[in-house]
Computed example of a mutant assay.
Amino acid sequence: MSVTSNTRVVDPRPARTRAAIYAAVRRLVTVDGAEITVNAIATEAGVSRTSFYAQFADLDALAVSMLVDAFRDIGHEDITARQNNRATRRDLAQASSRRLVQHIAGRRPFYRASLDWKLTSRVHETVIEAYADQVLAVIAVDPPILPADLDPGDAARFVAGGVLAVLTTWLRDEGHDWGSDHHVLADRLVSAMPPWLTESS
């Protein structure tokens, strides 16, 4: 007698394709003068253009996906650390900021190029909302003492928008000395955050 399972088998191929594309971007940005195009990325990833477009509508969508995945992964590590009471809020905020800056620094030419693309306002909003979602998740697991009239959603979007504005300036500004140590930029981000997010109660 056969047993029919209702468990749906997840096709691992799309995830592998996305991982290959992400890895291709990481490799291409280390090559001086390398083109950051769909063709170049697909070739480096060993996938067809059709496979690329099955995952991402365009390079904008790829940039957003990479950032959103980074926010999710960094946020998960942050929340796990908070649940285990591993460090102070400031130390945890610094660790998360450093991971985010490292992620962007390792792909800086790609993200820098994305600033010159004709991004829609929806793309910008999507990135801010994704970051804000992670801030809200942190607030939920490690509730700070918020000012009485401050809405958590507003607070999360304010923090997300501010962090991304500083990172955007950093990406655009080739001439200014932000410090060769990426920890310096991460620490500057934390210093600009509101005290309720970084200080212990």
Rank of each mutant, 00 (worst) to 15 (best):
T17L: 15
K118T: 11
V127W: 07
S97V: 05
D58L: 06
P14D: 08
R172F: 13
I74F: 02
G179R: 01
R72H: 13
Q55H: 14
P152G: 00
Y22R: 12
Q55D: 09
A34G: 03
A140P: 00
F110V: 05
E199G: 00
V123N: 09
V159K: 00
A42H: 06
T126W: 07
W170P: 02
T198H: 00
L146Y: 03
D78S: 08
S96F: 02
L59H: 07
Y131R: 10
R98H: 12
V135E: 01
S121Y: 12
D60C: 10
N85M: 10
R157V: 07
S96A: 15
L197T: 01
A155V: 03
A156D: 04
I145Q: 15
R107M: 08
E35C: 07
R122N: 13
V64H: 06
R16A: 15
M193L: 15
G46A: 10
H176C: 12
L167P: 03
V141S: 08
G179W: 00
I145N: 11
L167R: 08
A148C: 06
L67H: 04
L119R: 11
L197F: 09
A15C: 08
W196V: 05
Y22A: 13
I36T: 07
A70G: 05
Q83E: 11
A15G: 10
R86E: 13
L136Q: 05
A54M: 12
T7L: 12
R18E: 13
R8S: 12
P195W: 01
G33Q: 06
S180R: 12
R86F: 09
L189V: 10
V141K: 01
F52E: 02
Q94I: 14
T168A: 14
W196M: 04
F52D: 00
S5T: 15
A105H: 07
L59W: 05
W178E: 03
R122S: 11
E44T: 11
H176V: 12
R89F: 01
V184A: 08
P144L: 02
E199C: 07
R112W: 04
A130D: 08
Q55T: 11
A93N: 05
V138G: 03
D151P: 00
K118E: 14
H176I: 13
Y111C: 01
L67C: 08
R27V: 07
L119A: 10
V127K: 04
D177V: 08
A61Q: 14
E129M: 11
R16Q: 13
R82W: 04
R99I: 04
T126H: 14
S96C: 03
R16D: 13
L119E: 06
A42F: 06
G106A: 06
T7N: 06
R82H: 07
E125M: 10
R188D: 11
L150E: 08
V138L: 10
